[in-house]
Every structure is written in structure tokens, then in C-alpha cells.
């Protein structure tokens, strides 16, 4: 009931002098029901990793298994795989094309060969799950705001009823409020449906407070794979690989540098305040 990567390599432009490893010897297991964040700077290989999960890319070496079957073996039904492992690309609103929101969301289920009625039922369900009101259903998707377009695009993938939902940079280009709304919606979705969710992002701050497990990618390899709190202990090496920690975590590390015997593990403002307060009260 999981996705497994076994010694996976992925090489770009293999036959030119520009050939380079996008991924190098990746071993990974993703279990059913997990809420995972994959973090890394641009070019760290995180997008390649997600595209390998639903066979949009084929590994140069190694195997990717879904529920125990090699997804790149001959005769494997990739279309079915892609409906079970749903992938929402970065700026997914750029893939919208139908005249109205509702038809666009129906596109996925229809491709699966479902009846019109079943496709529409799924579209309703998916739009409800992303929190879109009925009044928008028959509007052109191009007239919506950036945040709403993105919800529609996510619904387009959800309507295929995936068991695993991968979201590549779901908050890119949104303002702080839009970002919080989308992430809250995803968390609610996770609670309501219990599906496996993989959030891909370059922002620690966004993802850390939502996920249970954090995978940090750096130069095509897995750098850390642990709970957010454990990962954040490596503040300096994370910063070196171009990632940003929550500002409070930086404050705690800075305090320690100044000689204050503070525990640096805080990742939220509340935790940091408690820690500092208990110190100052002594």
C-alpha cells in the first residue's frame, strides 16, 4: 500500500556534455495515509521525484513501485496509475481550458471512461472538497482570481479520486492570505478523506506546520527524512542548501550564539515564546 523508490537515478540530456544527474540513488518509501512535505531549492530534483511517482518520467536506473508493482514494467496500466496517484503541477491554473469551471473539473473523470453522471457527481464532490461555492460552477475559469483558479485546478485532479495526492508548489505566486487558505484547505481535505498527501515546496515555513514527515532534497539526493522538528535542528546546513527556516527558529539560534542557554527546537512563535519566557522568569 505504498510508493517505493529503489536505487532510482534520473539523468538529464544523457548523451551530451551537459548531462547531469537530476536524481541520484534515491531510496524512499511513502506509506498510505502519510502527510509528507518534500522541500528543496529549485533544481534540487523535487519536481523530477514527483513526476517519477506517476510514471510521467521513467527512471534512468532503478525501479519505482506502487503497491508492490514496478510501474515502468511492460503492460502496466499507467492511466489507472495516474488516476490513483494524482499530481497537481506548479501553477496548475495554466492547464485550465474549458469554457466553465464545472466542465473543466469533469475532464479528468471523463478521461477515465466514467459515465457523464458519475463524472459530474465526482466534479461536484471535488469542488466541494476544495471549498468552491456553487455560484462559480458555470463561470469561465479565466475570470476567477488566482487563488480560486488554483482551487479549480486542484479539484480537477481530486475528481479522479486519487489515493495519493501530490501538490507541486501549491502556494507559488499567492499572497500570504491566499497561501494560508490553500494550505488550510489541503489540511481539511486530508482530515476529511484520509488520503496520502505529498506537499512539494521550497518554503519550510509554509509546509512545516502542516506535515508529519519532511523530506529535504539537495542536489538530487535526499538530505534529511524525518519529522519537521528533527529536520529543523540542522539549521545551518539547511540554510546552506538555499532553504529558509521560520524566523523564530533563526531567532532561537541567534540567541544561542549570543550565549543564552536556550533550546533551539522551537518552530512556532508560541513555542519560542514559552521557551524564552521560562528562561527569563528564572
Amino acid at each position: 500500500m505504498s510508493i517505493i523508490f529503489n536505487h532510482v537515478n534520473y539523468i538529464y540530456d544523457a548523451d551530451t556534455k551537459h548531462s547531469s544527474y537530476a536524481l541520484k540513488d534515491i531510496n524512499l518509501q511513502i506509506n498510505k495515509g502519510e502527510f509528507i512535505g518534500i522541500i528543496g531549492h529549485t533544481g534540487s530534483g523535487k519536481s523530477t521525484l514527483t513526476q517519477l511517482m506517476n510514471a510521467l518520467l521513467k527512471p534512468t536506473d532503478g525501479e519505482v513501485y506502487f503497491e508492490g508493482v514496478d510501474i515502468n514494467s511492460n503492460g502496466y496500466n499507467k492511466k489507472e496509475l495516474r488516476s490513483r496517484v494524482g499530481l497537481v503541477f506548479q501553477y496548475p491554473e495554466h492547464q485550465l481550458f474549458e469554457a466553465d469551471v464545472f466542465s473543466d473539473v469533469c475532464y479528468g473523470p471523463k478521461n477515465l471512461g466514467l459515465s457523464k453522471k458519475e463524472a459530474e457527481l465526482r466534479a461536484f464532490e471535488a469542488l466541494r472538497l476544495v471549498g468552491m461555492d456553487n455560484e462559480y460552477y458555470y463561470q469561465s475559469p479565466f475570470d476567477l482570481s488566482g487563488g480560486q483558479k488554483r482551487r479549480v485546478a486542484i479539484a480537477g485532479v481530486l475528481a479522479m479520486k486519487p489515493e495519493v495526492l501530490i501538490l507541486d508548489e501549491p502556494t507559488a505566486g499567492l499572497d500570504p492570505k491566499g497561501r494560508d487558505e490553500i494550505l488550510d484547505q489541503i489540511t481539511r481535505l486530508k482530515k476529511e478523506t484520509g488520503i496520502t498527501i505529498i506537499l512539494v515546496s521550497h518554503s519550510m515555513e509554509d509546509v512545516a506546520k502542516y506535515v508529519d514527515r519532511l523530506i529535504v532534497m539537495n542536489q538530487g539526493q535526499i538530505m534529511y527524512d524525518d519529522t519537521p522538528r528533527e529536520v529543523f535542528k540542522h539549521a545551518e546546513s539547511l540554510q546552506e542548501s538555499g532553504l529558509a527556516l521560520p524566523r523564530v527558529t533563526y531567532i532561537m539560534h541567534e540567541l544561542k550564539k549570543l550565549g543564552v542557554p536556550v533550546d533551539t527546537k522551537a518552530i512556532t512563535v508560541e513555542e519560542a515564546a514559552m521557551e524564552i519566557a521560562s528562561l527569563l522568569r528564572k
Binding site: N54, K79, F89, H94, F97, Y107
Partner: peptide
Amino acid sequence: KAQIARGADFETGGLIKRAKALVPLLVP
């Protein structure tokens, strides 16, 4: 890729079916 992830099929079917399948690619 995004449309393939939504179950699009650009590779099989007759000429008309293939031409139709291109709409979700060409509009965006």
C-alpha cells in the same frame, strides 16, 4: 504532462480523436 496526469491520451485513437485530444493542450 499536466493533462496526461488528468488522464489525457495524446497517443492513441483515430485522427479526429487525436485532434480533439489536442484541445486541452492548445488552449492553455
